[in-house]
Design a protein around this nucleic acid. Structure first.
Length: 280
DNA sequence: AAGGATACCTGAATGC
DNA sequence: TGCATTCAGGTATCCT
């Protein structure tokens, strides 16, 4: 669901909308979601919005950060100063604030940021910037595709792992940002069965998988992410990558390459789609 | 210590 | 119709 391409799409929009704005109010509808002292960010300006794997960080001008993870159903929706919803997808977002709105942020220019989360798995933490790396999620996060995920490292974690290859590439401690959708499609492109034990992959397969991961993540980014359940960008709009799924969600449909019917199994407790003919 | 199973939630889809 | 069950998937935590 929200994986690297979705969270990056959110980050770019939020940075564009919020950079330089001063937070003048926070309305917390669900105390469980937020941890830390809200007063530390009130009356301060947002100077940057960063992404680490599937995590987002709002940087404030006083060296305090608001770190967040939207998990499965979180939505950040921005409403401009004119106080109208512009093009918000009503099916995916509803009328704001909705019964799923957990936090409302108000800014000095009368713009508003809503945070919705149906399943309440998301978290927000207010910490000094220099302590971000001590938060367990960030501390344990593996290297980032498009930044420091080298082929050498990728090959190393694969050849030394006893996990199923799909579980390995979805493990945030090993690689940051890949979730169920992009893992399924990358393994299909690389023609690798998702249950293969990682260390059994050949050098050629490892190279193909490395390239395939970058290919599907780029495709996701170009399409502003995938709306499979309720992901929307800060304009309240869905992504388009779901129109380009290769095997994800396609149980019983023909393989895009050989037309064999796509199978669904469980790997590591997660729904897993693959072509039984193409993926060995 | 790595790796697997389970818990956290709630809406949608399915089963009877 | 309506009630119960299953499923969805990111990560923290527990268990082996």
């Amino acid at each position: 669901m929200p994986e690297l391409p979705e969270v990056e799409t959110i980050r770019i929009k939020l940075k564009n909308y919020l950079e330089g704005k001063r937070l003048i109010g926070i309305d917390i509808k669900d105390n469980k979601i937020i941890d830390g002292d809200v007063k530390k960010i009130l009356q301060h300006k947002i100077t940057d919005v960063k992404r680490f794997g599937k995590g987002l960080v709002f940087q404030f001008d006083n060296n305090i950060a608001l770190a967040t993870h939207i998990k499965l159903t979180g939505q950040f929706i921005y409403r401009g100063p004119e106080n109208k919803d512009i093009n918000v997808d009503s099916k995916l977002v509803g009328r704001l604030p909705s019964k799923f709105t957990r936090v409302i942020f108000q800014f000095n220019d009368k713009s508003t940021l809503f945070f919705n989360d149906i399943r309440k798995f998301a978290w927000m933490k207010i910490v000094p910037t220099q302590q971000l790396n001590s938060l367990s999620f960030f501390k344990q996060l593996g290297p980032e595709p498009f930044k420091d995920l080298t082929f050498e490292y990728f090959k190393h974690i694969i050849t030394t792992s006893n996990s199923a290859i799909k579980s390995l590439i979805m493990n945030q401690k090993k690689i940051a940002g890949i979730g169920n959708i992009y893992a399924n499609d990358a393994l299909f492109l690389a023609k690798i069965h998702p249950q293969r034990k990682a260390k059994t992959l050949t050098d050629e397969e490892i190279k193909k998988l490395y390239d395939s991961i970058f290919f599907v993540l780029k495709k996701g980014l170009e399409n502003n992410g995938a709306t499979e359940m309720n992901y929307v960008n800060p304009d309240g709009q869905p992504g388009n990558y779901q129109k380009h799924f290769l095997v994800y969600g396609k149980e019983g449909k023909p393989c895009p390459v050989c037309h064999t019917l796509i199978k669904k199994i469980k790997v590591g407790g997660r729904g897993t789609y693959f072509c039984p003919k193409c993926q060995k």
